[in-house]
Simulated scan of single mutants.
Amino acid sequence: MAEKIDGMEFEQRHGKARVRVGRVWRSTSGRHSFVEWNISISLLSDCLPAYVHGDNSNIVATDTMKNTVSAAIIKIVEKPWERVDINGHPHNHGFKLGSEKHTTEVIVKKSGSLRVTSGVEGLALLKTTKSGFEGFVRDRYTILPETRERVLATEVTASWRYSFESLFAVPAMPLYFSERYQDVKKVLVHTFFGPPREGVDSPSVQATLYQMARDVLDRFPDVSSIHMKMPNLHFLPVNLSSKDNIIVKFDDDVYLPTDEPHGTIEASLSRIGSKM
């Protein structure tokens, strides 16, 4: 809204941006639904004195807006998390973002030696259950609670080296590397989520990473090594408290997505005698 001041028009709004919310709905059948929202709120209010005279008496604090999502100008952007299919069956609690990239690096020397590395970047995976983290070292600096039930989300970066050491060793098959990329990605995704109905337990991101890498090497003899990065992108359970110490407690179904800072987990797995 425009206001006149000193012969000029002044227009303002204030609010809260990037209020990130994750929400899980759980049905009695075991099927989960999940959304992640990024919410922005703007108020068109009569707070000219705050700008001109430093008088904040008419301002609604942005923290209040964040915690209440008040009726005003509200913009909501939903991330395109989609349910994962495992062998043609929709997964009960597995979701992914379709944003990954296929990477390849090929080194050919005059001697004829060959090095082919393929990979995937930005493979965003999330499951709403079957994940925990317990039994880790605790000391006076530790504030992270142990849990047997949490949302597990990550953005997988993986690169795998093929065993072919010369051009003559590469199979003369059209689309060989493109199809192998799809096959490896499928194994990574299926190992992360487990069977479509019951899923698979994850005691830690480390254990899941190792099993994903191990399954790739067990499945594909032409892959000699694999390097993986899996940051732990946190979805923290939300409870709201007011100045009157009244706590609004959710049923472990509303989460605060936080990807900065995040835990970093990185490892390589190679066949004996192979090179990364």
Rank of each mutant, 00 (worst) to 15 (best):
V223Q: 02
K16Y: 05
G263D: 14
E179A: 14
V21D: 02
P90T: 06
I246P: 00
S99L: 08
V170W: 03
N92E: 15
R83S: 02
L48A: 05
H93F: 15
A124G: 02
S40C: 15
T104V: 13
K243W: 05
P195S: 09
E82S: 10
L269C: 01
E165Q: 07
R148L: 07
T104L: 12
V52L: 13
D259M: 06
I272Q: 07
P171W: 03
F136V: 08
Q182P: 00
S225K: 02
G7W: 13
G112E: 06
A61Y: 04
Q211H: 00
K109M: 03
K229Y: 03
N67P: 00
E100I: 00
S40K: 09
P196D: 14
F250P: 01
V151I: 15
W37Y: 13
F136R: 09
E3D: 13
K109P: 00
P237H: 03
P203E: 04
N232K: 08
N87R: 05
E146V: 04
L97N: 05
F133T: 07
L236N: 01
K75M: 05
D139R: 10
S45C: 13
V116A: 06
A169Q: 14
V189H: 01
A2C: 06
K229A: 04
F136G: 10
A2W: 08
L167M: 11
I74A: 02
I73H: 12
V151T: 05
E266N: 14
P261K: 00
H262Y: 11
R115N: 14
E198L: 11
V35L: 10
T104S: 11
F250A: 03
I59Q: 03
V21S: 02
Y181C: 07
R161N: 12
E260F: 05
F10C: 13
N38Y: 00
I73L: 13
K275G: 06
Y210H: 15
N38L: 07
P221G: 10
G94R: 08
V69T: 13
H89I: 15
S270Y: 06
S57N: 10
V24Q: 08
V238F: 07
E100V: 00
I59G: 02
E100M: 05
F220H: 09
K79C: 02
W37K: 06
V200R: 12
D252L: 09
V60L: 11
S29R: 03
